[in-house]
Each structure stands twice: as structure tokens, then as C-alpha cells.
Design a protein around this nucleic acid. Structure first.
Lengths: 234, 234
DNA sequence: ACCTGAACACCGTTCAAGT
DNA sequence: ACCTGAACACCGTTCAAGT
């Protein structure tokens, strides 16, 4: 977290009396950023509204002047992550490369925040959400490349589904699938350990391997499909 | 829900006094099945332990004789769904068709239960879990077809990630991505409505279209990759 | 407009008492 | 061993009072 987003109240330790402060302390954005930082620091427990208030040097009830409820905090987090993804994804004239860059930035942003993945995929988009803008850019590229309008939407959603599932996988405890001492599943056990060793040898996580292989296959399959029955616009 | 799994206590309305009943009323499995039914009936709110108790004709505290906590109820749900998937997936000698059948059964089982998706991907597998057995079957087929042990694991995880992400998508409110009255995202808006109309015309959901397209592409890409640099075992 | 302090509501979990 | 009844703990949310 950058110093710029650190609430001044964390430095100033003196208790504040009731009443409106001269300069505003909180904002929806600051609350979202702080919540995201808390999720980063403590991965599995999630944050409480009281944690959030303490980190902001404020009482819990103050938060409700800026967000309707806890779900709204998650919505704000989604906006922040969406903007981060948008900023990182460098535009690429080739639709498949653009999708790939987007997918990588997307997964990276969410893998660090498992608790947000389920929320993200369930909450309706806000009007004027940045997410919508990103979709528009990708949809344009896909349609220009020859995908039909309906297909372009399916392609985006399919890649997004793969990314979100992969983010869940990447955020799961590393030993989640560990067959342990079981002897009744030898091929699975062998596969599990082989992937783990391969990942270690390449200096990445097992989840990274599955993501890379899956994304490559998915994009390759999409390229093939476009080539097979597309009608390029020019 | 079948009559066989319906708790007798739902028929017998008379209040029960304290003390051990002659015949056991609850079991871990029955609790899991009932929780799953509650999730089916009320999609978004999730179930409370008190709901669960009422549905079983029992007091809340009784549940804790059979499950450690609410998370354990979700773990039991996962086992139930896993067995259901296993039962439905008919074996197929071709690895890609087997994966496809598995993916469809998997998504169908979880799309109806959004709340379980996030849990499922985070909870460690129980020893002797049915999930492990399913992995073993798939890993065997993949390795016999020429995939390396490490790759076979990545393939399974990649398909699973796509399935889980798609299940999240399928369980989201249908208007989640609706651009509404926005005029700044014309290509996205066009794509959104085109997909919706195509889905309506084909009698499926928009989520179904994206899932079908993505799964086809993913499997096609995997087939290609195996053909390109595989060393079949025979 | 925006913060404090106190209260309320909800819900998961525990535990002694009872058979 | 397994159910009841009552209590506790935690946490999200509300609201009047204060500047």
C-alpha cells in the first residue's frame, strides 16, 4: 500500500471527540482501499467492520456515512481491482493477445483476494462501472476480428469464468488436493506430486502451471474456431 | 428431494421432550442433504443453522452432536455433490469425452448451489473423499492417452477451474452484466443483447452458451496440444 | 455533512440437565 | 449417545446527540 492512501488517523493517535471534523476523514474509496489491505494481510478470516474502523482510526458507525453496508465495501473493492486491471492491461491489436493480457492481469488481481471472487461474480455491475468499459474494449476487438456480437460476449464470459475459477484455485491452500497417504488413488497421487515437482523446478506454483496450460489451450481453441467459420468484417 | 431422505420429524408435529430418543433422528448425511435442499429452495440468502434445525424438526443445539460447525455442513454438502457427479458421469474410453461429461455433470451439480462454489475450492479434501477417486479415474485416462503425469494434473485442474468459474457465472443473477441505459459502451451493449437473444432463441441461458463455447475451445486446444508433442504410452 | 457512543438484532456455538 | 433449553459471544447495523 502506498503512503498516499494511508489514513492520516493512523499516525495521529489522539482520540477524537464526537461531531463533524473540519476535514473529512473517510471516503468510500479510502474504505475500499483499506478493506483490500486488510484482506491482503489476513487471507482467510476476512475483515470485520470493526477491523476496518480500527484501521481507519474511526468508530464503526462512522463507516455507515459512506457505505450502505458490508456488501457495498466489497462492491467498492471490485471497482478498485477492476481499475487496477484496466491500468495494467496494455492494449494489443491482436484479439487473442489482448485476451491473454487481460486474463493474466485479471487473475493476478483476484488471486490475492479470494474472498472477493465469489462476491465479484454475483454482484450486479454498477452503472458506469469500469468493468463495463473493459468489456467494451474487448468486445470491439473481438467483433472487429470477425466474431459475431453474441459470440464475442460468450468468449469474454468464458475467459472470465476460467480466470475466476483459476483465481479460486490459486488462492486455495497449496495442499488442498493432497492425496496424503491414500494408496487407492495411485495415478492421481502420481499426477499430484509430478505437477508439484515440475512447478518447483520452474519456480512457479502448481496453480500457475494449470492456469498457463488452460489459458493456452482455451485461446488456441478459440483461434481455431474463428478460423473455421468466421466472417471477418473486412 | 426424494421421500426417502425426508426426515420423519417433518410429518410428526408433536414437540419432543429432552433426552435421547429411542431411534436416532439426525445424521451428518441427513443434515447435509437438508442443507442442500434449503440452498435449492432459497438461492441467495443461504441457510441458517436455525433454518436447518427447523427443517429437521429439531433444536439448533442438536445439530452440534453431528457436525462440528457450519463449515462442516458445507464439507458434507461437497461430499454429496461429488458423489452425485461421480454417479452421473458415465465412463467414456476417450479422454476428451470423459472430461467433457465430467465437466457437464460438475457444473450442473454446482450451478444450483452458488454458495458452495467458493467453499468447495478452498476446503481441503477429506481423506477418502470421493473427489479423489474421480481425479484418479481421469488422471488414469489422461496418462494412458499420452499426457505426462504432471500435465494430467494440470489438465484436470484447468478444466475444473473453468467449470467452477462457469458455475459461478451460471448462478449469478441473469442481469448481472446488463449495461442498462449506458451509451458509452455500444459494442459491449450490443454483444450483451445479442447473446441474450441467441440464448432465448435456442432455449438455453446465456451462461450455457458461454460454457459450451468455452468448454469446446478448451478441449479442442487440449487435443491439439496432445497431438503436437505427446509421447503416447504405446 | 459527518463523527461518537450506546443500543439492538441476529446468529453461530456451548453446555448443563435430562433420558 | 443424543436431544432440549438457556445462555453467551460476536458482529453488522441503527440512531440520537454533538459540532
Amino acid at each position: 500500500m502506498s503512503a498516499a492512501t494511508k489514513p492520516a488517523s493512523e499516525v495521529d493517535e489522539r482520540p477524537r471527540s464526537a461531531g463533524r471534523p473540519r476535514v473529512g476523514i473517510l471516503s468510500r474509496r479510502l474504505i475500499g482501499e483499506t478493506a483490500l489491505r486488510l484482506l491482503d494481510e489476513d487471507r482467510d478470516t476476512g475483515f470485520r467492520m470493526s477491523d476496518l474502523a480500527r484501521a481507519l482510526g474511526v468508530r464503526v458507525s462512522s463507516l455507515y456515512n459512506h457505505v450502505e453496508n458490508k456488501a457495498a465495501v466489497f462492491a467498492e473493492i471490485r471497482e478498485i481491482l477492476a481499475e487496477r486491471i484496466d491500468g495494467e492491461a496494455t492494449p494489443d491489436p491482436r484479439w487473442d493477445r489482448a485476451l491473454r493480457t487481460w486474463a493474466h492481469a485479471y487473475r493476478a488481481a483476484f488471486a490475492a483476494h479470494p474472498a472477493t471472487v465469489a462476491y465479484l461474480s454475483t454482484l450486479p455491475l454498477d452503472a458506469n462501472s469500469t468493468v463495463g468499459t473493459a468489456y467494451d474494449h474487448l468486445a470491439s476487438q473481438l467483433q472487429d476480428a470477425g466474431w459475431s456480437a453474441a459470440e464475442s460476449m460468450s468468449v469474454i464470459v468464458a475467459v472470465e469464468s476460467f480466470v475466476l475459477g483459476s483465481a479460486l484455485d490459486a488462492s486455495a491452500p497449496p495442499d488442498m488436493l493432497d492425496p496424503g497417504q491414500r494408496t487407492d488413488v495411485p495415478r492421481f497421487s502420481g499426477a499430484y506430486h509430478a505437477r508439484r515437482e515440475l512447478a518447483a523446478a520452474e519456480g512457479v506454483t502448481p496453480a500457475d502451471l494449470a492456469f498457463a496450460l488452460g489459458l493456452d489451450a482455451l485461446l488456441e481453441g478459440l483461434r481455431l474456431r474463428l478460423g473455421a467459420h468466421a466472417t471477418p468484417s473486412r
